[in-house]
């Protein structure tokens, strides 16, 4: 139980910290949110490929997988794993396969939301 709670504390701290860096970038530069997201996913891919992101996931769990850097890590990890299992073909298919759940969910739920809801005036 204590181990689980400790895990939540670590997830909170690491996830919060990763988001805080993003906020500093937003406030200090003219970067739009789309550019921040691109930067994060690419950083995740690079850190993942260099083997630097896995230790962070082992330490903080969802604190490292939920931020978009975690999505990047998943793509890089998938590509390397694909290469090991299927050779060159796997290098192409592995990344998308690893990220497929997230991408499919975004398309599906996004489409549903567009059918059901209407955008509203900002408050």
């Amino acid at each position: 139980m204590i181990a689980m709670l400790w895990m939540y504390v670590k997830a909170f701290a690491v996830g919060g910290l990763i988001c805080m860096i993003g906020e500093a970038l937003l406030l200090k530069t003219q970067l739009t949110s789309a550019r921040i997201l691109v930067g994060y996913v690419t950083a995740g891919v690079i850190l993942g490929a260099l083997g630097l992101y896995k230790p962070l996931i082992d330490f903080a769990g969802a604190g490292a997988t939920v931020p978009l850097t975690g999505f990047g890590y998943m793509l890089a990890h998938g590509a390397i794993e694909g290469l090991e299992n299927e050779g060159l073909l796997g290098a192409f298919t592995g990344g998308v396969r690893a990220g497929a759940g997230g991408i499919a969910a975004a398309v599906f739920f996004g489409y549903l939301a567009a059918l059901i809801f209407k955008p509203k005036m900002k408050g």
Binding site: G15, G16, I18, C19, M20, I21, G22, E23, L25, L26, L27, S33, A34, I36, L37, Y40, V66, P67, L68, G70, F71, G102, A105, A106, V107, F109, G110, Y111, A113, A114, F117, K118, P119
Partner: peptide, 22 residues
């Protein structure tokens, strides 16, 4: 929250859903 709700995967989803609705 600013980046607090942009950087997590939920922010990615938001940036898919918002233009789809719009």
């Amino acid at each position: 929250a600013g980046a607090g709700s942009i950087v997590p995967i939920t922010g990615f989803a938001n940036s898919v859903v918002a233009p789809a609705m719009e």
